[in-house]
């Protein structure tokens, strides 16, 4: 997956491990400057109806989309069918096979629907898409998504837009360590230190939107996130001293494994 410090996802090779969201920015100009400051090579987008009359200006108008690896999302989908449809529309609009599967299962928190996420991922993989599913911090589900052919899995650190940071560090770390495909931590990363932490653990990348878009100075914050991501990548490569300590995150069953009436 990684050669010369680069991250390979489908047909894309990324030097920057920071994926930049494009929602909620104060202006098209700030968005363009923020992406430039972050050094991001991959940006996320959403698919929506074109306004038929009146103002058609978009927050994306200052961007040359051809310069980036586009990662359209299926945000707004409430079922696997809706996610697949949005993926089809995104491919038709952008002529790229990359898709971030996002199926909301709980409106208030925007937490993903695990079953629909899995189904949409499987179907889109079968159709030849490079699928990056947004998932919860559920370890087994992340593994199943990898098994289903996801190019990377994207567990949320915290609910979308919450900027709460890594709510379940234990699970996120376990996903990073156990997943056979790159893990890109998505959603809820509010501060560069949050991104730094997951990168230190070995995340392949992070996706940040609100943490930059709603910062006091988004452009400077984009730079800060980029530096944190870079530091975390270096730190993981160097090997954290604490990781040498045995039993640091030990766990074991309370119920005996022996004597199970199978086999």
């Amino acid at each position: 997956m990684e050669e010369d410090g680069r991250l390979r996802l489908g047909t894309a090779t990324l030097r920057s491990r920071l994926i930049h969201g494009t929602g909620k920015f104060p202006s098209a100009q700030v968005l363009a400057q923020s992406i430039a400051a972050s050094g991001a090579e991959m940006i996320t987008l959403a698919v929506r109806r074109l306004h038929l009359d009146g103002d058609r200006r978009s927050e994306l108008e200052g961007l040359d989309l051809a310069r980036y690896q586009l990662l359209p999302n299926t945000a707004g989908a409430r079922s696997a069918d809706e996610a697949v449809r949005l993926a089809h529309l995104a491919r038709a609009a952008g002529l790229s096979d990359f898709i971030k599967v996002e199926v909301v299962g709980h409106e208030a928190s925007l937490l993903p629907d695990p079953l629909a996420t899995f189904e949409a991922t499987s179907r889109l993989v079968a159709e030849g898409y490079t699928v990056l599913p947004y998932t919860s911090d559920d370890v087994a589900l992340a593994l199943r998504l990898a098994e289903a052919g996801a190019a990377a899995v994207m567990p949320g650190a915290a609910p979308i837009g919450s900027t709460l940071g890594v709510l379940n560090p234990h699970n996120i770390r376990l996903i990073i360590e156990e997943c056979p495909v790159p893990v890109i931590v998505d959603a809820g990363l509010g501060a560069p230190s949050d991104a730094l932490r997951v990168m230190e653990w070995g995340a392949a990348g992070v996706l940040v939107n609100t943490g930059i878009a709603r910062a006091g100075n988004p452009v400077e914050m984009a730079r800060a996130f980029a530096a944190a991501v870079e530091a975390g990548l270096l730190a993981h490569g160097a090997g954290l001293a604490g990781d040498a300590v045995e039993g640091r995150r030990g766990f074991g069953a309370s119920t005996p494994a022996a004597g199970l009436p199978v086999g």
């Binding site: 969201g21 929602g23 996320t44 698919v47 939107n209």
Partner: peptide, 10 residues
């Protein structure tokens, strides 16, 4: 008929 385009999103 649906005509869609890209907008900002995370």
């Amino acid at each position: 008929v649906e005509v869609v385009h890209f907008v900002g999103g995370g």
